[in-house]
Design a protein around this nucleic acid. Structure first.
Lengths: 154, 154
DNA sequence: GGAGTGAGTTCGGGGTACGAACTGACGCCG
DNA sequence: CGGCGTCAGTTCGTACCCCGAACTCACTCC
């Protein structure tokens, strides 16, 4: 693997190195849905055991999932999202909405609500100054001046 | 391939079938950045030619990219985002921000602005009733009652 | 004590991605 | 006009990764 090219948008590449393979996002999605155990995941995804085993291990190594023992004696673990994993939800939601909108055969099977008030949520880009949401065409990008600290997220 | 399981969140799986392989999202990202020609993309990504050729073809077939002839005579085409492709941006932005936040070695190289006013954008879940953004923990999900028409997006 | 379950690991075969080399249609420059 | 460079591919053989099937192991339940 070549040395990292120092290009902008590199975080996308870095992120996809961690979660961009064929199964990882689907595993994370299932854990979101509440599936936690090896056989649950395997049954739902139809993934080969060795591959699931490998992916879960990597997700734990990377801090996206955490193992929690749910029974001693045959020590059995279930997998839960860490904060890091939980924060993948904007990406998952974005993929879901794109599929709902653009793929005729992917009927929207799920609606997402704001827990506090039960209103169906929207996902969008938000301008805190104008206090509006807006679409992709209203985005401009600029290289961040080097070394400037990132803003605290959320 | 087994018949589609009729599970909720299925749009995520469907979406990932189209853009979930190792390269496709990176290609889309590069087209977002303004790279349009075969060799530009190849040089930037370090992707093997046959793979790039195949992925571009599939992206065009699926309606995410469109070919536009930019010179006759050796007929040469460049690739541009369709509306469908453009709307992948929420997913790309979500992946980018996740990387910025959680991957120490992925310095945020790009800032995104609201074109109208120059303010740095946020991306979040938006509750139109409460007029606030909120995080993943404030989401609830429900199966959509069957056959209900999807809302007009954006 | 035999069957069942949950969570894996081991083991070949097959499909896919890879880099390298080849093609072909030009344009440019001396 | 002849050779070189460029752009956009395709062909080819290998190397790797994914897959399903079978095996393991530690238990529980009947």
């Amino acid at each position: 693997m070549a040395a990292a090219r120092d290009e902008p948008f590199d975080s996308i590449a870095k992120t996809l190195e961690l979660v961009g393979d064929r199964w990882t996002m689907l595993i994370v999605r299932d854990v979101f849905r509440g599936l936690r155990r090896f056989e649950e995941l395997r049954g739902d995804l139809g993934i080969a055991r060795p591959v699931l085993s490998d992916r879960l291990g990597k997700l734990v190594d990377r801090g996206i999932l955490a193992k929690a023992r749910y029974q001693e004696h045959p020590p059995r673990y279930e997998y839960r999202l860490t904060e890091m994993g939980l924060e993948l939800s904007p990406a998952l939601v974005a993929l879901m909405r794109w599929g709902d909108r653009w793929l005729a055969d992917a009927a929207p099977g799920v609606v997402l609500y704001h827990r506090a008030c039960g209103t169906e949520l929207e996902q969008g880009f938000w301008c805190p100054k104008c206090a509006t949401t807006f679409g992709p065409r209203a985005i401009k990008s600029r290289a961040r001046p080097n070394g400037q600290p990132r803003r605290a997220a959320r």
